[in-house]
Design a protein around this nucleic acid. Structure first.
Lengths: 245, 245
DNA sequence: CAACTGTATGCTGTAGGCGGTCTACGAGAA
DNA sequence: TTCTCGTAGACCGCCTACAGCATACAGTTG
C-alpha cells in the first residue's frame, strides 16, 4: 500500500529509482518516531514494519542500522530493534554537547563571515520573524533549524557542521514542545547573533550562541519538571534483554 | 576459511554466538582499512569481501553500513561502497573538532575529578612513560588512546565521550605516523594535564589539552608537507559515480 | 581517427526462505 | 500458592536467488 509512495517518489512511472529503498524506509521510520507513532522503548519487529511499509525485511533491517547509527533506535543483538528511550541524563548531556558545537560554529562563522552568507542569515531571520508574527509555530521551528544549519555551514568546518546537525536533530526530538513557548525571544536572540557574525565579532557571537542554547536548555528543564517523566510504555511484545548493560 | 575464526571467537564449541556476524565483519574490515590493505578510494565489492571473509553478502552489507555511519567508507547508492578518501581539508577540520571535544572533556574531567579517577589516569601515564622508555611505540600509541578515552569518560558526559572517541579514531588513522615522532614530549604534557585535573583546575586542564592536541595538529601538518599527498590509486574496478556531488 | 551504439558482464538492491534462539505460557510438583 | 520445567510460538540472523542498472568493450559509422 505504502509501497508505491515509497518507491515512486517522483511522478514518472517507469523511471529508475535513484534512491535506494532503505533511505525511503529510513525517513519513513524516522517520521514515525518523531511524530510519536513509534514510542520510546517500543520493540520494532522487522516483519511488522515490512508489512506496514509494503517492503521486505531486508530494507527494513538496513534502515534500522542507519537509524541506530544516528542514535534513534537501539539494536540489541538477538532481540531486535527498540526505539531509543532517552534518559533525562542523556538529554542533558546532549544539550550540553549541542551548546559546545553550536558555540564553536558561531565563533567560526563570525571569523569567516562573508557578505553573501550574512545576507542569507538575515533572510532566514526575516522569514522566522514573519512566521512568529503569523503564529505559525511549525514554520518557526523549521526555519529555526535552517538558520542554525546555515550558521554551522558558514563556519566552514563541514565535520563540525555535520556533527552539530546530528546532535540538533536529536535534541529537537526532546524539546520540540519547548521551542513553541519562546518564539519571539528566541528570534530576537537570533537577530543579535547574526549581527555579531556580520560584525565578525567572534567572542560576541560565541557568547550569544552559548546563552541562546542554554536558554533552550533551561526551558527544557523547566518543562520536564512540569511533566516529570514520560516513561516508556511496556514494550508491545518482546522484552528487553536481561542485562541492558 | 576465515569463517570459523569470525564465528567462534570464544573457545566453547557449541555456545550460542553472542555477537552478530556483522560486528565481527565490521571489525575485520576496519582492521583491513586501518592497516592499509584496503586503500582509500578503493571500491569494495560485496561479493569479493564475502568470499574473502567466508560469509554471505548480507553481513557484509550491514557491516558496510556501520562503517559508513562512522565515516570509514562512503556508500554511493547504486555504485557500492568505497573506502573513504580523506582530503587534507577534512583532516584539518577533524583535528579541529577533536581539539574542541577533547578540550571540553578535559575541562569537565577537572570539574568532576575524583581521587579514584585521577589514580587511574596516573597509572596510565606511568605505563605510557614506561612504554616510551622501552621504545615500544605501538604500546605508547595504544596507551595514549586509553588515556584520552579515560579522560573523556571522567568528564561524566557520555555523549561527549562517545563523539570524542569516534573522532579520535578517525584522526588516528591520518596521523599515526606522527605520534611515533613525539613520544616523550607528548607524555610530559600528559602528566601536566593529569596534574591539572587532579587539582580540579578546569582552565589549566583545558588549556593544556588544547595545546596538546594542537601540537599533534602541527606535527601532522609538518609531516604532510614532507610527503605531500598520498593520492588514492585508481579504483580497482568500478569507477565512482559521475557526480560525487 | 574519433565518436557513437549495441552487447555482454558484473554488481547492487531486494525478495523469500531456513535454522536457531528467545520469549511466553501453561502444567505439574513442592 | 509459588516455583520449576517443558512446550509452542514468534522473531532474528543469515543464506540463496533473482531482477535491474551500471560499466566496459567491441563493432560500426561519420
Amino acid at each position: 500500500m505504502l509501497r508505491t509512495e515509497l518507491a515512486n517518489q517522483g511522478a514518472a512511472p517507469k523511471i529508475a529509482r535513484p534512491v535506494p529503498l532503505r533511505e525511503s524506509v529510513f525517513e519513513a521510520l524516522l517520521e514515525l518516531i518523531l511524530t510519536g507513532h513509534l514510542k520510546p522503548g517500543q520493540h520494532l519487529a522487522e516483519s511488522e514494519l515490512a508489512g506496514l511499509l509494503g517492503v521486505s525485511r531486508q530494507p527494513i533491517r538496513e534502515a534500522l542500522q542507519l537509524l541506530s547509527g544516528e542514535g534513534w533506535v537501539d539494536l540489541h543483538p538477538g532481540h531486535g530493534a527498540f526505539v531509543h528511550a532517552p534518559t533525562v541524563e542523556e538529554a542533558d548531556q546532549l544539550l550540553a554537547v549541542r551548546t559546545l558545537l553550536e558555540t564553536e560554529s558561531a565563533k567560526l562563522a563570525a571569523r569567516h563571515s562573508t557578505p553573501d552568507g550574512v545576507q542569507r542569515l538575515r533572510a532566514l531571520c526575516a522569514r522566522g520573524l514573519a512566521a512568529v508574527d503569523a503564529d505559525d509555530v511549525d514554520m518557526s521551528v523549521a526555519i529555526n533549524s535552517e538558520l542554525h544549519a546555515a550558521i554551522t555551514e558558514l563556519s566552514g568546518n563541514k565535520v563540525l557542521a555535520e556533527l552539530a546537525s546530528l546532535v540538533s536533530r536529536r535534541v529537537r526530538w526532546y524539546h520540540t514542545p519547548v521551542a513553541r513557548k519562546r518564539g519571539r525571544d528566541s528570534w530576537s536572540e537570533h537577530t543579535e547573533l547574526v549581527d555579531a557574525i556580520a560584525a565578525a565579532d567572534e567572542d560576541r557571537a560565541a557568547d550569544i550562541m552559548r546563552k541562546h542554547t542554554e536558554h533552550t536548555r533551561d526551558s527544557y528543564l523547566e518543562q520536564r519538571q512540569a511533566e516529570p517523566v514520560e516513561s516508556a510504555p511496556e514494550p508491545t511484545r518482546r522484552r528487553r534483554p536481561r542485562s541492558p548493560k
